[in-house]
Design a protein around this nucleic acid. Structure first.
Lengths: 110, 110
DNA sequence: AGTGTCTATATCGTAACCCGATATAGTGAA
DNA sequence: TTCACTATATCGGGTTACGATATAGACACT
């Protein structure tokens, strides 16, 4: 397990969590993730865009284009009600996984 | 992310953590994981044995065969000093990852 | 006009991981 | 001898993450 290996499977929760707070476009999301994690997490293009596409296919997010005066047009993502329900379940899973892992590795919490 | 997806990347920490407590053979380890996690985690053969093999190749564990009067012979695994150092680093990564994840998903701890 | 940097989205190929299926085999009970 | 449980091992396939690559707009500098 490297840092990147551990991150596998957590992309969905991370993206949905951030989108549940506010509508964002992809690039903005990537920066937010890097900032909020103090550089620990960094989503590359090859990770982020396919993940967003998958979330949209699943009906967890919706997207729309907007032009920008500062650069190329942006694709904004909004979490759906289905996405909110999914997020709630994913957070429960994360909590359970965390509890089990900490029991095994002998760490109380992070 | 399904439960199984989240688990990806955590196999190494889990196995090394349990082996740092006592010497075990593969099947025993699998049962221990299932018991300690109250059924939440379940390592199948196709996950466990390749993982143990990889850990041995990396020099994190050592193994030896012993016959059993109750069934087929068993391959016992013992964590090495290198493995203990690796485990320590992995636990640090897990702790950091946990902190960052909880900050993003808005959960204090599990 | 040309170069470079930052912004912004998208896809492809590859590597790594997990797991179901399958194979092999010993013990013991029905 | 058939079944269940114990025990190790490998293969194939699906999924995930990511580096590389492509495209393109805005802006600064020369």
């Amino acid at each position: 397990m490297s840092k990147t290996e551990l991150v596998k499977g957590s992309t969905e929760v991370i993206i949905l969590s951030l989108l549940s707070e506010q509508v964002m476009y992809g690039y903005e999301l990537a920066q937010k993730i890097e900032n909020e994690s103090e550089g620990f997490l960094r989503f590359r293009e090859g990770t982020l865009y396919p993940a967003l596409k998958k979330l949209e296919t699943q009906g967890f997010v919706e997207s729309y284009w907007r032009n920008s005066t500062e650069g190329p047009r942006r694709k904004y993502y909004k979490i759906t009600n289905t996405g909110k329900k999914a997020l709630s379940g994913l957070i429960n899973e994360w909590t359970a996984f965390q509890r089990v892992m900490n029991k095994i590795v002998g760490v109380s919490h992070g």
